[in-house]
Design a protein around this nucleic acid. Structure first.
Lengths: 219, 219
DNA sequence: GCAATATTGTGCAATATTTCGCTTTTCAAC
DNA sequence: GTTGAAAAGCGAAATATTGCACAATATTGC
């Protein structure tokens, strides 16, 4: 949306910076240098300076960055200044774990509705979140104006349910199924494929020497 | 070790290819083209061909790739021809979900031991996996010669426990905590940071127009 | 066996990302 | 003030990755 268009690689690191900055603020630290930040988040200090510089000159030469200034700035950029509601589609093992995962505290994100086929939990409240039957999904998502969902359904059902999500006007899907779902271009999918990540880790261990850097995040 | 050194980006896609290939094999398909694969895994066909070509000429021009040949080949490359044991450190909400996550079926990976501080579950068997008290961790990991762990402990404890893991001779850590843990260079860390990923998704939705491609995996 | 077709493998250009190294600015101490 | 040290900002080089476009080659149908 109009800013100077940030590289994707940078965008992925912003939440990481943000979290560490809030940690610093909570422990009373008021200034930080790219070098200190680098040690904490394991990103090269030049990369951090470059990342920040996309947003303008946020620091002071010879001094560093003011922690509270950065937080104030990134809070807005990252939408942390307002609560984001998301839905959980599929309340199985992983779904339950995510219900209890504290997205809210660190990130101002709330799972405000769940959906599941299982009649034993549809209609109940799990970890404070109302679970609706799958049949009501499109209607509820529209009504509650939810634009982002976490998809943790069986792989077989993933594409069909995704199609419904699209009908319901969803804009973003965090996809925990191993299926690479098909969506229209205006819908964004973030794949989190646990088995693949573990597999990748094993591959790196077997085939790359030590000291190889990155390998990082899902991604 | 020693092969022609594959780009990291390629290595991360291998498990994805492998999974879809096994799916094809199970449904009786014997040949596949890079174009078909491309549609299923949402990776450009030229990228797929390039990825495969790092391993030699695996396909036949004018024909495509033989599914079973590819599977046989990648099975070895990806260590899927033998069972890999991993440990789960921290058996809370997410840990429990991972115990039930079927790594084994698709990936020949087994969680063969769990560790937790909580005396209520230490000493029990959860989802078929024995859970040991944290105090026995180093000893057990050594004894069972486990080299890879999944770390799902509270953030506060993450670095201390990581230090113990290193002492126990661990080589790879799949880190679900938001802390970027410090490890010696011979230990590889794969970060899976759920809140950050969700945050990134939200950022992309707010700041990038539609149709932007990637954004992908944890990564 | 030949022509038409399909599809790989890859040189190369385009794009994306990281990192070096230096200039500039700011701060702190005297 | 003046000076020295610290550290951002940034041009430009280095590195990594992707994707185009096409020649090479296999397959299929006649």
């Amino acid at each position: 949306m109009a800013e100077t268009i940030i590289p994707k690689a940078t965008a992925k690191r912003l939440p990481l910076y943000y979290r560490y900055l809030t940690f610093l603020a909570n422990s009373g630290t008021t200034k930080v240098s790219s070098t200190e930040l680098s040690e904490a988040v394991k990103v090269d200090s030049a990369t951090i300076r470059r990342d920040f510089s996309y947003f303008g000159a946020l620091g002071k030469r010879g001094y560093g960055y003011d922690v509270n200034d950065l937080i104030k700035f990134f809070k807005k950029i990252l939408n942390q200044d307002r609560l984001t509601n998301v839905a959980l589609v599929g309340v199985g093992n992983l779904g339950h774990a995510l219900l209890n995962y504290n997205f809210r505290q660190a990130n101002n994100i709330r799972i405000s509705a769940g959906f599941d086929l299982n009649p034993e939990i549809a209609g109940t409240i799990q970890s404070g979140v109302p679970i609706y039957p799958m049949a009501d999904m499109v209607e509820q998502l529209r009504e509650q104006q939810i634009e982002i969902v976490i998809l943790t359904v069986p792989t077989d059902a993933a594409q069909d349910i995704t199609d419904d999500l699209v009908k319901a006007g969803i804009k973003g899907i965090m996809n925990f199924t191993p299926l690479r779902i098909s969506v229209p271009s205006y819908v964004r999918v973030q794949n989190v494929d646990l088995a693949t990540e573990l597999q990748t880790l094993i591959y790196f261990l077997e085939h790359y020497g030590p000291t190889l850097k990155d390998a990082d995040d899902a991604e």
